[in-house]
């Protein structure tokens, strides 16, 4: 599974980077995003859901978060 590290990237750059990364992924494929605590973990998942992707889970690991997502229809 592809992993995209968005740690250290603030809003809204992290969301735009996530969108760009998703352009290279096929619909139905699963991907992991690494997100900082605070604004990023609060905002990015919600924005990706609103873009039509399927959120599969969120796990906290050593002070950051791993968001698992299935790419939605283009």
């Amino acid at each position: 599974m592809e992993q995209i590290d968005l740690r250290g990237v603030s809003c809204p750059t992290n969301f735009v980077k996530a969108k760009l990364a998703l352009e290279d992924i096929e619909t139905g494929e699963t991907v992991e995003f690494l997100l900082d605590d605070g604004e990023p973990v609060k905002n990015v998942p919600r924005s990706l859901k609103a873009d039509g992707h399927k959120l599969l889970g969120l796990k906290e690991t050593d002070g950051y978060y791993v968001l698992t997502l299935e790419k939605g229809e283009e």
């Binding site: 973990v41 609060k42 959120l55 969120l58």
Partner: peptide
């Protein structure tokens, strides 16, 4: 609910 915890994380 799939127990992802996003709601708890989002609720400031």
């Amino acid at each position: 609910c799939i127990s992802c915890g996003l709601c708890a994380k989002s609720c400031v």
